[in-house]
Write a protein that binds this DNA or RNA. Structure first.
Length: 299
DNA sequence: TTCCAGGGGTAGA
DNA sequence: TCTACCCATGGA
């Protein structure tokens, strides 16, 4: 049985550039389909049922949500739950007008507003963003995809054979050794397990980190206090949570800086930080746009 | 075989 | 605050 509803979006929102703003769209349980311009996701509702979501932008750039896999109707509570999760995932509460006003002043960055880029696709839960970000550290993107795919198979299955992202409770119920025998995350496995345990037993309420009143310096400290989250990972998480005043300088960013700097590599990360400093509270997003420019322009 | 990826923890200064 | 060294995986 299939149900469809619309999630309203803010002005200047565009569905496809937001989907393609981040590699997340190709990490399970998301999958993006370029020809159809749809984003799919196998998703577990709070009550336990697993559904398949097919998302597309409609003519007004609102999000058309098709829900497959519910035997009964889509209840108002389920619709609210999905809308809430998608509001998080698409960062629909975020006002980017100041960001566009800033980049409009730089010829190099005029493409950002023209492409309606800058809104980043996140996961519906902070736990999922943390787990995936941990699996991007010190590895290749291809390896990240494989590790996340294996992690994802631990989640609740749906009828067509997909899996929802595993809950922290599910991961916490495993031993670290069993988890890593399955995910093959190397030294990251123990960190992932510890994170799941702390969330599952209530020691950490990571969903509360979405609170807009939380200062980014405070949030940064909290993320970095997690095992396995250093400057790069914490900077990445802050962006997904809507704080853009932190850089997340990785090998990719260093390569991009070299291009911007006429082929001359930065002597150190401080030189890269100095380049982005004028962008103030938006510097992290400008840095991300530099990394994603080629991909976004071709999406 | 070695090197290293969308780094980070730890010890020691 | 900075540096040296270690860390598992698997592709090149």
């Amino acid at each position: 049985m299939t149900h469809t509803f619309i999630v309203q979006t803010p002005p200047a929102f565009r569905f496809w550039p937001t989907v393609r703003s981040h590699g997340w769209c190709d990490l399970g349980p998301f999958s993006s389909h370029v020809e159809a311009r749809t984003l799919e996701r196998v998703h577990q509702l709070g009550a336990g049922s697993v559904v398949r979501l097919i998302l597309a932008g409609d003519k007004d750039e609102h999000i058309a949500v098709t829900v497959e896999g519910l035997d009964n109707g889509l209840s108002p509570a389920q619709k609210d739950e999905l809308t809430h999760g998608l509001t998080n995932a698409f960062n629909l509460d975020r006002d980017l007008s100041d960001f566009y006003a800033l980049v409009r002043q730089y010829p190099r960055y005029l493409w950002i507003e023209q492409k309606a880029a800058g809104r980043m696709l996140a996961a519906p839960t902070v736990w999922e963003d943390l787990a995936k970000t941990l699996l991007t550290t010190n590895t290749t993107w291809n390896m990240t995809k494989q590790m996340v795919a294996r992690l994802n198979t631990l989640g609740e299955p749906d009828a067509p054979g997909g899996h929802a992202f595993p809950t922290p409770e599910r991961i916490a119920a495993m031993t670290p050794d069993d988890l890593n025998a399955h995910v093959r995350a190397g030294y990251r496995g123990a960190y992932l397990h510890e994170l799941a345990v702390r969330i599952a037993n209530g020691d950490l309420d990571v969903e509360s980190w979405r609170d807009p009143a939380l200062a980014s310096a405070d949030l940064y400290k909290r993320v970095k206090s997690l095992k396995g989250f250093g400057d790069y990972a914490a900077g990445s998480i802050l962006k997904l949570l809507g704080h853009f005043d932190r850089l997340a300088t990785d090998t990719e960013c260093r390569a991009v800086y070299k291009e911007i700097n006429n082929g001359v590599p930065a002597q150190n990360d401080a030189e890269i930080a100095a380049y982005y400093e004028p962008f103030g509270p938006w510097r992290g997003l400008v840095q991300w746009m530099d990394v994603m420019e080629g991909w976004l322009k071709n999406s």
